[in-house]
Design a protein around this nucleic acid. Structure first.
Length: 315
RNA sequence: ACAAAAUCGGC
């Protein structure tokens, strides 16, 4: 059974969706009764592929067959609804599990909280956070990060910062993702100074920045009209093995294009191509808008040809 | 070491 579960999981991972499903259907014939791990894997996979109907069907089947279930299948299904913003359904799973005597844990709560944060329902999200604390469920780095990200998304930086300080006090260590969301928050507010302070702080702590860190910083500098500084920042990063990607590049290109500095944008592309960052369709779209704005038909056609030559599909 | 939760780009 364990082997079967592992196999189903890896088939899904390899996107061999039909074979995974087939194996699941064949299990019974092989004298294997799917357990809650099997159901969790199936529910998670369907959830993450927008097939909540199938996910729920599997869940129903599990319930109907009275499979003794751990917390996993519930949390997987709840997370599926939560990420899609179907909060009513997520809540109903929450109540289902409580009824069945399965106690929601920190992952369950964090998943729900994250769902409300994505819906910008910060009051509800924060209330859930208080509830879980009252029930003696200790929040962790994921929980705090979800909330901080939520507050940043609705431009409530002071609340985000308050939570950040609180987690440090409670010895719940912020990690890379926590720093990334706060840095992004500050950059969106135009506070690049504070953003770079946090960037330095994370380096000091030995945390490793990545494209999720760089992209906000690049965008932040560009939006402040400091495109050249953004370029320098990128140049400095190219030295080491770069964690820059096409998303960071698109942010830089947009900075150039908004100032009408197209030739510098093209140079930036060349430089980044040399370091292994490939242009994707969004990068080209940014350049195309730049060329359009300047009525540069020649460049426009050259770009469209390049898109085609690189095997990309215009959208 | 059989399963679950948090962060990005163009229009």
């Amino acid at each position: 059974l364990d082997v079967c579960n592992a196999l189903i999981k890896s088939l899904f991972k390899a996107c061999k969706y039909e074979e995974a499903e087939l194996l699941y259907l064949k299990m019974e014939g092989m004298g294997l009764i799917p357990n809650d791990v099997t159901y969790s894997i199936l529910i998670e996979w369907y959830s993450k592929n927008g097939r909540m109907d199938k996910a729920f069907e599997i869940y129903r089947k599990m319930v109907d067959l009275c499979v003794v279930a751990s917390i996993y299948p519930y949390t997987c299904l709840l997370n599926g609804y939560s990420q899609l913003g179907e909060m009513k359904k997520a809540e109903s799973i929450f109540h289902d599990m409580v009824e069945k005597g399965v106690k929601p844990n920190v992952v369950t709560y964090t998943s729900l909280i994250s769902g409300y944060c994505k819906q910008k329902e910060m009051k509800v999200a924060f209330k859930l956070f208080c509830n879980m604390c009252e029930r003696g469920i200790a929040p962790n780095t994921y929980t705090y990060t979800a909330l901080i990200s939520g507050f940043c998304r609705v431009h409530m930086i002071p609340d985000a910062v308050k939570l950040f300080e609180e987690m440090v006090q409670r010895k719940i260590p912020p990690n890379e993702v926590t720093y990334n969301v706060l840095i992004d928050g500050y950059c969106q507010e135009g506070n690049t100074v504070r953003a770079f302070q946090l960037y330095d702080e994370m380096l000091q702590k030995g945390l490793v920045p990545d494209s999720y860190t760089y992209r906000p910083l690049i965008s932040g500098l560009c939006r402040a009209g400091r495109v050249s500084e953004a370029q320098e920042f990128v140049n400095d990063l190219c030295g080491e093995k770069s964690r820059l990607n096409e998303i960071c590049l698109s942010a830089l290109l947009q900075g150039y294009c908004q100032e009408g500095r197209l030739s510098e944008a093209y140079n930036a592309c060349k430089k980044n191509l040399a370091t292994g960052v490939e242009m994707d369709i969004v990068c080209y779209t940014v350049l195309i808008y730049g060329a359009l704005k300047r009525n540069d038909k020649r460049e426009l056609f050259r770009l469209l040809k390049e898109v085609h030559d690189n095997g990309l599909t215009p959208d």
